[in-house]
Nucleic acid binder design. Structure first.
Length: 271
DNA sequence: AAAAGCCCCTGGATGC
DNA sequence: TGCATCCAGGGGCTTT
């Protein structure tokens, strides 16, 4: 669930409501991907200044330090005035003066990590190698094409790797390649300037449209207000193996790349 | 240096 | 009904 659009939708549904809140308590459940990095109770008394996003990370800026939150494969956040008793998969609660922020994550691939600052080792380890923000002003065609040209792996896997451009996960990689008419198996280094241009536009377009649709709710994603997304209804190829292409009617194909599924239309994406 | 595999974990769908 | 197998939105780490 949580690719860039889902993380951004979560941020949008949370930032205004939690900004200015004082942390009054912390509850931790089962271990997540990494330890918090400081005794949880030391967060009490600090104030949440705001919420930013970098790639698929949410950054909770505190008056001293920051919390890096990642939703992994199955995580979602809720922010409510009152929270019911913690369920089996509620692994982190931040009790604040303005509501309770709760991370639910059945598979526990997610993380909550404290860093004293953005340049601290704990933050650099997670954020240091991230690529360009696709919806930001720094996402230029020149840099994007240059990033693709120096990689010989399949373009789908280069998009997923996140070191050229961040935030594109398994759903939106397939969707963007469809919009650009590029086959996911094409080596990134062989993409022409013209096709890089198409892919550059497609990545921005599909991510922006997904944010506008509230993200994709395949199983159980919801934003911090508990609202589901509906971009999955607009998907052109993702999870549509065997179904007719929405443009030309050819059955959508599914293949495996790096133990992940890729979807494409053999007619609309000839190479 | 870059690419390919493996692994973390739980739950839902499918098949026998 | 029970049990085994496969698959799922991510990505760090180890091995080639």
């Amino acid at each position: 669930m949580p690719e860039l659009p889902e993380v951004e939708v979560t941020r949008l549904s949370l930032a205004d409501r939690i900004a200015g809140a004082r942390i009054e308590g912390v509850r931790v459940g089962k271990p997540l991907r990494w330890p918090l990095g400081l005794p949880a109770q030391r967060l009490v008394g600090r104030t949440v200044r705001g919420v930013r996003r970098r790639g698929k990370y949410l950054l909770l800026d505190l008056d001293e330090g920051l919390l890096l939150l990642h939703l992994g494969m199955s995580g979602s956040l809720s922010f409510r005035a009152q929270a019911p008793g913690a369920g089996a998969h509620d692994h982190f609660d931040l009790v604040t003066s303005q509501g309770i922020l709760r991370l639910n994550d059945p598979r526990r691939f997610g993380a909550v990590v404290y860093a004293p600052g953005e340049d601290a080792p704990a933050a650099r380890k997670l954020l240091g190698r991230l690529g360009i923000e696709p919806l930001g002003e720094g996402f230029g065609l020149d840099e994007f094409h240059a990033g693709l040209r120096r990689r010989h792996a399949a373009v789908k896997q280069v998009l997923l790797a996140g070191d050229v451009v961040v935030g594109v996960g398994n759903i939106y990689a397939s969707e963007a390649l469809f919009l650009a008419g590029i086959r996911p198996t094409l080596r990134a280094s062989r993409i022409s300037r013209a096709r890089a241009q198409k892919l550059h536009t497609a990545v921005r377009q599909v991510l922006a449209r997904a944010v506008a649709a509230g993200g994709s709710t395949l199983r159980d994603f919801s934003n911090a207000r508990g609202e589901a997304g509906y971009f999955q209804l607009e998907a052109m190829v993702y999870d549509r193996a065997g179904q007719p292409c929405r443009v030309c009617g050819t059955p959508v194909k599914s293949i495996r790349q790096g133990q992940r599924s890729s979807y494409f239309c053999p007619t609309c994406q000839k190479s």
